[in-house]
Amino acid sequence: MIRLTGIEKDFGPTVVLHGVDLEVKEGTVTALIGPSGGGKSTLLRCVNLLERPRAGLLELGDLSVKFQGNQPPTRDQLHAVRRQTGMVFQAFHLFPHRTALGNVIEGLLTVQKLPRPAAEERGRALLQRVGLSSKENSYPGQLSGGQQQRVAIARALAGNPKVLLCDEPTSALDPELAKEVVDVLTALAQDGVTMIVATHDLRLAGAAASQVAFLDGGRVAELGSPSGLLGNPRLTRTREFVSHLKG
């Protein structure tokens, strides 16, 4: 269970999150949709503490971190949260100086301190899972965008996180390459990987998600099932936004 309670975040005078509550059950996928600037990315980055909320409670399984005032999380909390989350970025952010396999096993070697042969074995299994067994020795610069993002997904899964955080994983890809990534994420969802996915891609939200949250103005404006929220939204604002996504 991942639970966010009253998460608030500001960047100086700009308040980006006004107390977000969200609950994600183990083995389910939550899609975050909403306009740019609505707080989707910031919310995801608060879950793995790339951003520090100014208030609220973050619960990841047994781990809970409370944010109050300007008190930073302890080192132990920070690393515990990071070890239990994986993140996929819009712009991939693969390590350019490491091969596909090297990217996937980097955390296993440095964070989990696995011996190299064990890490490589796990890394190869993950590359196979995202359909890239034949590319283990390729550098990111030699891969297509879709392949890079699939390597990034394998890298994010390597530490066996409680939740996979995907920040617009298909937004930098053309529709064909995006489909590769949607297919991989959908397959992972079917395997029971817990995910929170910020996306503008209705295929991804529709196919993989078990709940969809519409984030607008730093709040969860509407929460529902994919068919309900995307098919028959309650709020006019949601309806407008979803109709834009459908194009």
């Binding site: 790339l50 990071r82 970025f89 712009a91 440095t110 964070v111 989990q112 994010a156």
Partner: peptide, 11 residues
């Protein structure tokens, strides 16, 4: 992004 990717894998 390279720092963030490193932190996100737990470094």
């Amino acid at each position: 992004g390279q720092w963030e990717a490193s932190f996100s894998v737990g470094m």
